[in-house]
């Protein structure tokens, strides 16, 4: 089995109005991991996502699923959309039914599975997303966070291999953000799903993502583990992004207050470790000095 579930090769996409949204994007999505796509507004993230499950067909370049180029025939697209699911940013654009249960069942019913299997998957997706108690509520009674969960359940029920989420945390309260991210992590670990997400919520990236790409102007400008990417502070800022708050604090401590750290820290636990190391190193020097 290939290490990469999705590979994007030199992808170009231009909209009908002439906007060049993607100008040669190349990236790999690793199997069974969470990959973040970062970038300011209009960097081309959403266009990239729509290319990943064949909603948009690239002008040139390739998208490979499991090593095979996407098949844009009718049956090929059907298969593709079963394997690569997209959760859109605004759940109101995705939930078409006034019934939560019916909406979640839509994608699975389209897969032409037997009814018991559809019911099992819908129930399971509702349990996984914590929406079981919303079953009898109409969609328009739900809060934004609840709608988001239902939208995720609707795609999870299809049991895709790749789950693509456009800004899954936008508009949620802090608790909502961590709950959604935990839910995605669980789905990824228990169902073996590969997750791709775009976000402006920089602080969650080092916590939940194992790899990230930074896009700007339709191109990938930076790639690596969150630690690697966030050590390029200047480049990150030049594309309208920022460091995680903790990373920013550590940067200031290092540059302005003469703290000495051996490696970059971008999460609370990493910063804690680095600060403890610094304290111990300091204690050692003081001891040496006294003796």
């Amino acid at each position: 089995m290939d290490e990469n579930i999705l590979e994007v090769r030199d992808l170009h996409y231009t909209y009908a109005d002439g906007t060049q949204a993607l100008k040669g994007v190349t990236l790999d999505i690793k199997r069974g991991q969470t990959t973040a796509i970062l970038g300011g507004n209009g960097a081309g993230k959403s266009t990239l996502f729509l290319n990943l499950n064949g909603i948009l067909k690239p002008l040139s370049g390739l998208v490979l699923l499991d090593g095979k180029p996407l098949d844009y025939s009718r049956s090929g697209l059907k298969e593709l959309r079963r394997r690569v699911g997209i959760v859109f940013q605004d759940p109101d654009n995705q939930l078409f039914s006034a019934s939560v249960y019916q909406d979640i069942s839509f994608g699975v019913v389209n897969m032409k599975l037997p009814e018991e299997e559809v019911r099992r998957r819908v129930e399971e997706a509702m349990k996984r997303t914590g929406t079981l108690h919303l079953k009898d509520k109409p969609t328009h009674f739900l809060s934004f966070g609840q709608k988001k969960r239902v939208a995720i359940a609707g795609v999870l029920a299809m049991e895709p291999e790749v789950l693509v989420l456009d800004e899954p945390t936008a508009g949620l309260d802090p608790l909502g953000v961590s709950e959604i991210m935990k839910l995605l992590k669980e789905a990824q670990e228990e169902m073996g799903i590969s997750v791709v997400l775009s976000t402006h919520d920089i602080d969650i990236v080092p916590l939940y993502c194992s790899y990230c790409y930074v896009m700007d102007g339709g191109q990938v400008v930076l790639r690596g583990t969150p630690k690697e990417v966030f050590s390029e502070a200047g480049k990150i800022r030049s594309v309208h992004l920022r460091l995680p708050r903790v990373g920013h604090l550590m940067e200031i401590l290092k540059d302005k207050d003469d703290f000495e750290f051996t490696e970059t820290a971008v999460t609370i636990s990493e910063a804690r470790k680095a600060l403890k190391q610094w304290r111990e190193a300091g204690a050692r020097t003081r001891r040496v000095y006294r003796e």
């Binding site: 909603i55 959309r81 079963r82 997209i86 859109f88 839509f106 994608g107 389209n110 795609v155």
Partner: peptide
């Protein structure tokens, strides 16, 4: 956008 989202679910 709704149409796109529906298409994405087959």
């Amino acid at each position: 956008e709704l149409y796109t989202a529906l298409e994405a679910r087959g």
